[in-house]
């Protein structure tokens, strides 16, 4: 009974945080499913891929991979390059995912951009089990993405609705999370490093290949500036 209560309370606390992701994932998931459908794939493809890969940007690229000639090595390297940012998420979550028992495996499996962002930044209320809270954030996100993608794959181009601009919900969410982090810290050097490095690399390398240079840039700057950053206590 006590355990059941803990789980229920965590689900109730986690759900509101995932509402924007529901909007974003249904929109993007439907788009992705429709894209697969009109590319000639059965709904089984987006269904299986949304469940197992659970990473939006790669899944869109994977459609092109499946339509091109078979190139396993290239597929694998592309995957590592597109997904490399998860290494940063993992390093940031080493502490938070500690002591979560069997749930830890699923938390890491489902650590997409959005699950990471919420689980890192949410103020989990007193008395709520952290492990279960983060588990439900991840599970709900996974469910939204899976149902959206599968539905898109089933319905295909039958769907038409004026949702132009809805994709901005993801940008809005990242802006809010960035702002929350900004308001929490006294000094902003690390936040500014992230903004400046990615903007500079986006201009230099273009939208399709700027993430790896950005990450290397951030890593370099944080390493070189470690002493002043630690002294100023921005890394908090």
């Amino acid at each position: 009974m006590h355990r059941k209560n803990t789980i229920k309370k965590a689900l109730k606390a986690a759900f509101p945080y995932t509402i924007p992701i529901f909007a974003g994932f249904w929109f993007l998931g439907l788009t992705y499913g429709i894209y697969m459908n009109v590319s000639g794939f059965s709904f089984v493809y987006p269904m299986v891929m949304s469940l197992t890969i659970f990473g939006g940007s790669l899944e869109f690229v994977a459609v092109e991979m499946l339509l091109s000639a078979y190139a396993p090595l290239q597929t694998f390297i592309m995957t590592l390059l597109i997904q490399a940012r998860h290494l940063f998420y993992g390093i940031s979550m080493l502490d938070k995912y500690k002591n979560t028992g069997w749930k830890k495996f699923y938390l890491i499996f489902g650590m997409c951009d959005e699950s990471f962002s919420i689980n890192y930044s949410a103020h989990i209320p007193e008395g709520i089990d952290k492990g279960w809270f983060m588990f439900f954030v991840t599970l709900l996100n996974h469910l939204y993405w899976f149902t959206g993608a599968t539905l898109g794959g089933v319905l295909g181009s039958l769907l038409s609705f004026n949702t132009q601009g809805l994709e901005f919900v993801m940008t809005a969410m990242f802006v809010v999370i960035f702002l929350e982090q900004w308001l929490k810290e006294k000094r902003h050097s690390t936040a500014l490093i992230g903004l400046a490095a990615s903007t500079a690399c986006l201009i230099l390398f273009g939208p399709d290949s700027f993430m790896i240079p950005t990450m290397l840039c951030i890593l370099f700057l944080l390493t070189v500036l470690r002493k002043p950053i630690e002294r100023a206590g921005d890394a908090a």
Partner: peptide, 23 residues
Amino acid sequence: YIQYLGKALPAAIFGMLVVYSLK
């Protein structure tokens, strides 16, 4: 060093994600 990165990275990552979503 990794502990330091774990603390210093998130703010930088959130900045990166804002730019990423606008790419």
